[in-house]
Amino acid sequence: MAEAPPRRLGLGPPPGDAPRAELVALTAVQSEQGEAGGGGSPRRLGLLGSPLPPGAPLPGPGSGSGSACGQRSSAAHKRYRRLQNWVYNVLERPRGWAFVYHVFIFLLVFSCLVLSVLSTIQEHQELANECLLILEFVMIVVFGLEYIVRVWSAGCCCRYRGWQGRFRFARKPFCVIDFIVFVASVAVIAAGTQGNIFATSALRSMRFLQILRMVRMDRRGGTWKLLGSVVYAHSKELITAWYIGFLVLIFASFLVYLAEKDANSDFSSYADSLWWGTITLTTIGYGDKTPHTWLGRVLAAGFALLGISFFALPAGILGSGFALKVQEQHRQKHFEKRRMPAANLIQAAWRLYSTDMSRAYLTATWYYYDSILPSFRELALLFEHVQRARNGGLRPLEVRRAPVPDGAPSRYPPVATCHRPGSTSFCPGESSRMGIKDRIRMGSSQRRTGPSKQHLAPPTMPTSPSSEQVGEATSPTKVQKSWSFNDRTRFRASLRLKPRTSAEDAPSEEVA
């Protein structure tokens, strides 16, 4: 009796068929016929556990003709996506030579605008209408194809895939403007070719909807975003200037109206006075309405000098805001240009540092100066060695804690006790272990408590650290204090090793 083939788990290929790579489910599931010992083939499952149809090819690079078809379809799909992405970037994010197409579109729109203006002049109306009709045909074809291509290429973005995504893309403001202008152009052409009475009025009214094509030149909205950011950044200043200017306008108009309503027919109503105030304070000055009385002229002159300053403030605020924003954008561009080279330089330096163990090129690091100058660790070890030599091999803490019996001779020589300023008595072995921070803190506390006492003391002649007598400086308080830590004499004296002298005989010792 033939044995059933062993159940295979995992992703390994079956024996005897090495080139074939078959994806098997996580659990080997066989058909009921196979479990019962029949000759049925096992049921194939996909990666998600769903059964595959009987005629479906197995996924994998070596699955025969199905694999070749899959490779061809995958390559075609990649080319399709690449083309779609390229078209989308050309239309929505132009760079380099892609601006040539947008310059061509701008020339078409500008020519249409010029011809629309010439069509309103009686001398050039006939020729402009003929040229404009031909140009409209060209623009309908160009913009119609462009609109379709834009909607198709938007599928390269995830949020615009599918018919719902394309509809979302078509609802964008600039796409809506394109659609309105396209419909208006078709209506103008249809009305112009019919030759009816309505054609002339339709051409004159709907052609100027094509002015909206100038708005579509900035599809990404960079200028509007820049203007919005400047207004938002200086909103408080703008609101303040406009508010005060509006108050000056209504008060000036009302007072001039009261002064001129009886003697001047131009100011017969408050609305006429508001019109005069707006034209005057905005420095336009049509001259259609002028005050005639001396009181009205004085009020107009005073409020004009006051109001023009507030009406001119928004222009200066926006101008300075634009300058600052442009400078910030230039700085951001320079930062973006330098970020990648800086990151590459840091990575290269780290690779060199991690692979080169000698690091002989590091001549400006802490390790280099640590090898030249005595390190703080060596100074600490030197302090501890000196203290243990004086205390008979014991550390200062051990000397303080060691009990001394009554009447027993002390094995240590008597030492002079010292007192730290602002604290109780402490171990004499710690007097010379006072660090730089303690010395600086002690000097600052003395300056806070009594700076007036220092200038009363007789001035001391500054001497070099080499000429100081070591026996005289029994305490860190003898170090000359200065008002600034930048004094080199104080810094050098604080680094010197001060020996400890006994109370009975204080021989001067120098520590090399």
Rank of each mutant, 00 (worst) to 15 (best):
A271T: 01
V109L: 11
E136V: 02
T278M: 11
I189N: 13
K236T: 14
C175F: 00
K172E: 07
D178E: 15
F106L: 07
Q194P: 00
L133R: 09
I180M: 13
R213H: 02
L133F: 14
S269C: 02
F208C: 09
S201A: 00
L107F: 11
I197L: 04
K225N: 08
A184D: 15
Y232N: 05
R213C: 03
F143Y: 15
I197F: 01
R220C: 05
I211V: 12
L108P: 13
F208Y: 10
L238M: 01
C175R: 10
D178H: 08
Q210E: 08
R219H: 14
Y257F: 15
L249V: 13
A271S: 07
F251Y: 11
L133I: 01
V181A: 05
L209Q: 10
Q210K: 15
S253T: 00
T193P: 04
I105L: 09
K333E: 05
L115P: 06
D218G: 07
A191S: 08
R216C: 01
T223S: 03
C156W: 07
K225Q: 05
N196Y: 00
A191E: 13
M214T: 02
V188G: 13
L133H: 04
V215G: 03
V181G: 06
R219G: 13
L209P: 10
D178A: 09
G221C: 04
M214V: 02
K172Q: 12
K225E: 14
M217T: 14
Q125H: 15
W224L: 11
K225T: 08
L133V: 12
N196S: 11
G245W: 10
L133P: 02
T240P: 04
D178Y: 06
P173T: 09
I211S: 11
R213G: 12
F254S: 10
L113V: 00
C175Y: 03
S201F: 07
M206V: 10
G228R: 04
N196T: 13
F310V: 08
Y243H: 12
I177S: 06
R219L: 12
H102P: 03
T223I: 04
R216H: 06
T223P: 00
V109I: 11
F198I: 00
S116C: 04
P173S: 02
L132R: 07
K325M: 08
A184V: 05
F310S: 09
I177N: 08
A271G: 09
E136A: 01
G192D: 14
V149F: 12
F208S: 06
L113R: 02
F110Y: 13
F106Y: 06
T290S: 10
K236R: 01
R204C: 03
T120I: 02
G221S: 05
I211T: 06
E136Q: 12
E136G: 15
W294C: 03
V188L: 07
V188F: 09
V188D: 14
L203P: 14
I239S: 05
R213S: 01
M206T: 03
V231F: 08
L212Q: 15
